[in-house]
Design a protein around this nucleic acid. Structure first.
Lengths: 330, 330
DNA sequence: TTCGCCGCTGTAACCGTTTACACGAACACG
DNA sequence: CGTGTTCGTGTAAACGGTTACAGCGGCGAA
């Protein structure tokens, strides 16, 4: 009931614990008959090596830590799925933690993971990444998700937010929308800032004016932005810095009787699965979320093995045009 | 760089490792000046006890394992969020694993968790739960999610699928829909079977006929069910065994020019977040997913502490009527 | 025969904690 | 001034593996 130990196996197979260990780890030369006997006995006793004991001895845990700002919603679900896929393929375990957007909480989570993992995938929402780097020190190689300000001395997976946002804003401008509003993300979020930069550049290029409304990536803030726009006089198009805000915006505009895309065109960013289901389906910049997760985990594996260089891997989002912006043709 | 050990702290504070251990664990009587000195030194060295060593010694890992059929989509995201919330509140870590719906894979995951966790939350999709129970043996108390056939010798959190489905079908029947089709879930899934039973009872009570179409809980299967219904002649209402299928159904019907709820009323089950966003918003049976996750983890804590009885905790879903079924009033 | 080598196996040290037990000092009490 | 108690601390034995090193039998070559 209490789990067989290596000593139990050794006794039952009439060998020493060293031989059992060698057999089970596949390494070194163990005589065939001995090996077979050990394997048989281990199977019969349902022996599983105690992971803590092994970790203590080998300094490896076969576990990767994952620290995300939140676990809620489509985006993170998709990310975790990609990470899990790669992890189970490599026989690694996943230790999960969320920081609720708080850098201090993230630091605590990272510290707590120190001896529990071989490597860490971390996504820090705000620009204050130094705290995290300090906290994660000693927990093995760290891999960053998102533009995080670590200056190239760690691997990081980033999205080309500027290019994606530029493409979206350009697309909106091409459909003869002159007045294009932008609902921004949190000001301390680098991804959000880059998207705003892309928007500004495209709008300027099209000879239109910048029109920026505050937001914080939540559906609720999208709804509030829409109310503000409704009272200020509607633009021709609204570009929200992420899909969740676009959905909030969509609901509020629809409730106010605004037709999309006929009265106002709408676009988001990320291409979370919901984006296809809302009505009308949302134009957005598709980020390969699950693939980024998978690649990040593979990067951890490489880092643990000592290969894998530092520096950024940039993913360029794909413009996905759906009905929310495709209505007007002049 | 390599992480200070308890010996380093002991040496620096000029005490024995036993005193350091006692100080840091808060227990026993350590003289105040000694305690202060140890704490100060530990802080200066940024000492964090090695979790594997501690686990080996105490046989506790402060970690709870979570094994789910999948990590994809709204339902599991919400569930994990609830679990995480409770876990971080209790200072516990989360070891995550998905079984991809395969009972054998779930068993592997459970075995691998044996010495890594103090307790396990497990959701087994199919009825074959015995394999899992055998595999999880020795990994601490197990808590089940969903109707799983463990006959009361473990705690389990289940939804009253029968009552929820009955309520939905009754609601559809009350709106003078006579011909109500049911899109079923996988036949080896107990939740799905119970929902079907609830549907059948309500339809029989209303004096209508049973009309069952196959499905497997995926959006795709919902779409196929809709095509079948379109070719067989449409019913007055369609009740899908979960929201994802209802969404697939909705899309396919809408594409075919069917108006919802005017031509056909539609309902799902679960109340995943998307259900509110689709157009028209979906009538469904609301399951408190995140709360179930939270309660399951709290149950793990209680089980570890030796309290917490076995047996089922039943959650009764709440009927949520939205536009997809609210159209017709005769 | 003797020596060296090789293939296989066992012994024991180590990984970093917790904790039962022993021990010494201080102190109250008869 | 012994003796028993209490308080604070140290010593050492677990916990369950991995692995360097030693040992041993058999075999080929000198």
């Amino acid at each position: 009931m209490k789990g067989a130990t290596i000593h139990d196996v050794a006794r039952a197979a009439d060998v020493s614990i060293a031989t059992v260990s060698r057999t089970l780890n596949g390494i070194e030369t163990v005589a065939a008959p001995t090996r077979d006997r050990v394997l048989r006995v281990a199977g019969e006793l349902d022996y599983i090596p105690h992971s803590a004991a092994r970790a203590l001895s080998t300094r490896r845990t076969d576990t990767v830590g994952v620290v995300l700002p939140d676990l809620h919603g489509e985006f993170f679900s998709e990310l975790i799925r990609g990470i899990d896929l790669a992890a189970r393929g490599a026989g690694l375990h996943l230790l999960l933690s969320s920081s609720h957007g708080d850098a201090a909480e993230a630091a605590i989570a990272l510290r707590a993971m120190r001896s529990r993992v071989d490597s860490i995938i971390v996504m820090i929402p705000s620009a204050s990444v130094d705290l995290a780097i300090a906290a994660g020190r000693g927990a093995g190689p760290m891999v960053f998700l998102g533009e995080s300000g670590c200056n190239g001395d760690h691997p990081s997976f980033v999205v080309d937010n500027y290019a994606g946002a530029f493409a979206i804003a350009e697309h909106l401008a091409q459909s003869s929308h002159r007045r294009i509003a932008f609902v921004a993300g949190p000001s301390d979020n680098i991804d959000a800032r880059e998207r705003q930069r892309g928007y500004c550049a495209a709008v300027r290029q099209a000879g239109a004016e910048e029109w920026i409304v505050e937001g914080d990536f939540t559906e609720q803030s999208g709804r509030e932005a829409a109310r503000l726009l409704l009272s200020d006089g509607l633009p021709d198009a609204v570009f929200c810095a992420n899909d969740m805000m676009a959905i909030g915006c969509l609901e509020a505009l629809r409730d106010a009787g605004v037709r999309i895309p006929d009265d106002v065109a709408l676009a988001g960013f990320d291409d979370i699965p919901i984006a296809r289901y809302v009505s009308p389906p949302l134009t957005t910049a598709a980020v390969p979320i699950a693939e980024i997760g998978r690649r990040a985990l593979e990067c951890c594996i490489d880092k643990i093995a000592g290969r894998a260089p530092d520096g950024q891997r940039v993913f360029k989002p794909k413009l996905v045009i759906r009905e929310s912006s495709a209505g007007r043709t002049e």
